[in-house]
């Protein structure tokens, strides 16, 4: 099966390799200015140095920690609030206007005010990431909780399940596909906000390094760090997709 997948993407990989080779040739031939776009082979060598010297570990870990912490906090708030709003109409009435008020704010615009209050440290960055994560998770959870089969809820009541038991053992598992879909959207946004917060705060992390390298005109290094960040994005998506498949294996079997 892995072999089949590999065969399916082989032509695509070949095209990618060709494009990189073409870029290399174009730069070497002087068609693209070397100062702006170093040849891929040079970027590759820089990347290798970063990896071999272990220099990449600290910034990568800083960004990873930020994304994970913000993603976890935001997801938790989104799931709890979404479940409450989907389950108790009173909670929905109470929070709906507030949610509708904050939701359309482009979350990137909240970073400057947050910097005034929380400084430029970890707290500010985590809060920025968590804020952008909350809403997709919340809305999807709400939708999932409301979509739970009435017959199953009646059955739970017939069996004398209490509210907490019903929520934990019936509603949340049934809403899980929706919750996870929301979390997948949020994960991408979390990385965007993490990089932005790092750039604006100006200390540490992959986002800061990329901007800093450009401003110091260390162009090779800028591209090398960008590759590391892209791989991080790819890895996070891949890991989440795998976890999602595992968590929802029952759904695929029934479908």
């Amino acid at each position: 099966m892995l072999l089949d997948r590999l065969r399916a993407i082989l032509p695509g990989l070949a095209v990618l390799a060709l494009l990189i080779a073409g870029l290399e040739a174009a730069v070497q031939a002087g068609m693209i200015r070397r100062v702006l776009m170093p040849p891929p082979s040079v970027i590759g060598a820089t990347l290798f140095d970063l990896l071999a010297s272990g220099e990449f570990v600290e910034p990568l870990m800083a960004t990873l920690k930020l994304v994970f912490a913000g993603f976890a906090i935001g997801s938790l708030i989104g799931i709890v609030l979404g479940t409450a709003m989907g389950w108790w109409p009173a909670a929905f009435r109470l929070f709906e206007p507030l949610v509708e008020l904050v939701r359309p704010v482009p979350k990137s615009a909240l970073v400057p005010p947050l910097m005034l209050f929380l400084g430029i440290g970890f707290t500010m960055k985590v809060t920025s990431v968590a804020l952008v994560v909350i809403f997709p998770v919340l809305l999807n959870t709400l939708q999932g909780v409301r979509g739970v089969d009435r017959v199953m809820l009646d059955a739970a009541r017939t069996h004398g399940w209490g509210t907490a038991h019903t929520l934990w053992h019936l509603v949340l598992p049934a809403a899980l596909p929706f919750v996870l879909a929301g979390m997948r959207i949020s994960l991408g946004l979390a990385l965007v906000l993490a990089v932005l917060a790092e750039m604006l705060a100006g200390e540490g992390g992959l986002g800061f390094l990329i901007l800093d390298m450009q401003r110091s005109f260390l162009i090779r290094q800028m591209y090398a760090w960008l590759v590391i960040l892209a791989v991080l994005g790819l890895a996070l998506n891949g890991i989440f997709a795998a976890l999602e498949r595992r968590a929802l294996h029952w759904q695929n079997r029934n479908a």
């Binding site: 993490a194 992959l206 800028m222 960008l226 960040l229 892209a230 994005g233």
Partner: peptide, 11 residues
């Protein structure tokens, strides 16, 4: 696709 947008701004 997985490159976070703010990161493409510097290049």
């Amino acid at each position: 696709r997985p490159i976070p947008v703010p990161a493409v701004i510097p290049p």
